[in-house]
Design a protein around this nucleic acid. Structure first.
Lengths: 164, 164
DNA sequence: TAGCAATGGCTAAGCACTTAGCTATACTAG
DNA sequence: CTAGTATAGCTAAGTGCTTAGCCATTGCTA
């Protein structure tokens, strides 16, 4: 069953026969798979009035454990985005009443973001359905295949991080 | 060697022990790996004054073969973006002199985008280094492991596309 | 063949990210 | 202690995407 990536590879083979484009089979499919997964996850998020970036912030706060307080810097590291992107996300979340900001008593520069009761309820409701959606995406893979996939992804991640 | 995803899983285990979050190990790492790969590829693109989206358009034109003409609609399908995003990319590329637009003689509604000579030279120069970067990312995987990875990704892609 | 839905391409407006640059607090070295 | 540097958080400006909506042409159908 030829897919989009297969057709692309055939085109390259015809136009640039001297170039071995086999890495595209792997890397190209990785990107496209990630996109397809993201768009599937977005469906579940939308049922709760969320998107991936909002879910990310709320989920990070939830899994930090009681009292559900995290610094903006930690949120940025975790979500792999800039600190200014975090500030903007928090502005929106705060105006929706899902998080609150307070000064960090131990560091005059710092802020601590906390889940409000409404934020807590929302992420608590969305979490299990989200994980369930993820589970359906990998349902076709055995435990062993899942472990294999994780191992291979880790090695590519390491290679990508290495010389960046 | 515990990575970021491992730490996240530990946090969930502590906060939500009743929830089986093992799907996150797979899906979460997939997303993060794709991000890490994208940022590594961006380094090579930048050496040629490109980014991934510009490269995508020029590469699509090149691999279409002579006379290197493609409709905006086909570019949109290929890049998995909206037709308006294509129009905006083309506006920039045209003002940089890398592509040209002409009416489609066979369809009064249509436009055909063509590589200019400068665009041709640029993508021709950037292509091989880009593939080489991709190759270094998967250099740690044997041919067999690469094939395994492609197969697993295809199955997740299929699952994601299935009920979207 | 006239009418109407579908297709192709575009601009406008809105949104979320980026980098640049600001302020304030904390750390470190002389 | 004080000067210089690093850290934390923020806003402003710029970029590239999205959806909404427009116009022109095509193709189907009654």
């Amino acid at each position: 069953m030829a897919d989009q990536v297969d057709r692309i590879l055939e085109q390259w083979q015809a136009e640039k026969p001297e170039l071995d484009v086999s890495p595209m089979a792997v890397i190209g499919r990785l990107s496209r798979t990630a996109l397809a997964v993201d768009s599937r996850l977005a469906v579940t998020f939308a049922r709760y009035g969320l998107d991936a970036s909002v879910f990310d912030v709320l989920a990070t706060l939830l899994r930090s454990g009681a009292p559900y307080r995290v610094s903006p810097a930690a949120l940025a590291r975790d979500a792999m985005i800039s600190s200014s992107a975090v500030a903007q996300r928090l502005n929106k979340l705060q105006s929706r009443g899902l998080v609150s900001r307070a000064a960090n008593p131990d560091d005059g520069r710092g802020t601590l973001v906390a889940l409000t009761e409404a934020g807590r309820r929302l992420i608590d409701a969305a979490l299990a359905p989200h994980v369930e959606t993820e589970r359906t995406l990998i349902a076709g893979l055995s435990r062993e295949e899942q472990a294999t996939l994780v191992g291979l992804l880790q090695r590519i991640s390491a290679a990508a991080a290495h010389d960046t």
